[in-house]
């Protein structure tokens, strides 16, 4: 694992004031660390990374990272990212969202982005609650859990983010937790390399609201909960029953939206000279992207 000090100097913005907006012990910092290490390990040029986020505690991540960064509106990060990626296929577009952000207000964009299968990497930080607005119920809050808008316990069924992404057509789906740091980093790395849409669910802790209101305790207690209540998907199903599974659930070879679009353009362009120019432009961008990826 990359040592922390050089990573900070290399990947974080020198002109940003620390400490961060996050509560001490929040899982958001761990997810950001995993992402930065994964990007660094692959040697991707910072100029070619676009980090896009929605609204919420996780949405503040891009402000600290030294890339092209885009903090969008609530729930819409994937739609902004889609436009950006289509305009600039040479950029590595990475999207960070929270569970409320991506699945409640952004649910429609979530399923359609999975379906569209454009090569981007999205990370959903799933802490089962709205942290920034003060502990309201989210689409992943478990039944009977307490939130400020579910004072008698939540009665809505939660989404399983990873399964939703899988059935909606994402090329890559994986899940880990902020306790399983190496595993999470590894899954993010795989996602960054994927052609097609990669969705990574990072189970995280909001001890300030979810942990406190549901009497789970502080950050360490919540990390322990992740350790005790999750299991690798490859484990014997009998042994892991009642546990949340971790690992890679989907890893498909797909053509991806961009390549499909390129085929379509080749069919549509009638002017031979224009077609030649267009291909050259694309190849140039591909080369650049490959060079970046090393």
């Amino acid at each position: 694992m990359e040592r922390t000090a050089p990573l900070i100097h290399d990947m974080l913005r020198p002109n940003k004031k620390f400490p961060s907006v996050w509560c001490p012990g929040c899982g958001n910092g761990i997810v950001l660390g995993c992402l930065l290490r994964a990007i660094k390990a692959q040697g991707i040029d910072h100029n070619k990374v676009a980090l896009v986020s929605g609204i919420g505690c996780s949405g503040r991540m891009p402000v600290y990272a030294d890339f092209n960064t885009l903090h969008t509106t609530h729930g819409r990060a994937l739609a902004f990212a889609t436009g950006l990626k289509l305009a600039r296929p040479d950029l590595h577009v990475i999207v960070i969202m929270g569970d409320g952000d991506s699945l409640a207000i952004g649910g429609n964009h979530f399923i359609h982005t999975c379906r569209r299968n454009l090569s981007m990497t999205a990370i959903v930080v799933n802490n089962k609650i709205y942290g920034m607005t003060g502990g309201q119920c989210s689409p992943t809050t478990p039944v009977d859990s307490v939130a400020t808008t579910a004072t008698y316990g939540n009665i809505d069924q939660p989404f399983d983010i990873s399964h939703l992404a899988a059935v909606a057509g994402a090329a890559f789906v994986g899940r880990s937790t902020v306790f399983h740091v190496r595993e999470l980093e590894n899954i993010i790395s795989q996602g960054l390399n994927k052609k097609g849409f990669a969705l990574i669910e990072a189970i995280s802790n909001c001890h300030t609201y979810f942990g406190r209101m549901n009497r789970i305790g502080q950050a360490p207690d919540m990390l322990k909960w992740m350790k005790d209540n999750t299991a690798p998907v490859l484990m014997d199903p009998e042994k892991r029953k009642d546990k949340v599974t971790r690992g890679v659930f989907v890893d498909k070879e797909t053509i991806g939206f961009l390549q499909h679009y390129e085929q379509l353009v080749e069919k549509a362009i009638k002017n031979k000279e224009l077609l030649k120019q267009w291909k050259q432009k694309r190849e140039h961008k591909d080369d650049e992207a490959e060079e970046q990826a090393g």
């Binding site: 819409r76 889609t82 436009g83 289509l86 305009a87 679009y261 379509l264 362009i269 120019q277």
Partner: peptide
């Protein structure tokens, strides 16, 4: 596509507006 430019049908108008902002930044 005839001109080698991008057309995409988005899932709704919220996404349409978001996509053109993302593209413009690109």
């Amino acid at each position: 596509p005839q001109e080698g430019r991008v057309f995409v049908q988005m899932e709704d108008e919220i996404a349409s507006m978001a996509s053109i902002i993302g593209a413009a930044l690109g």
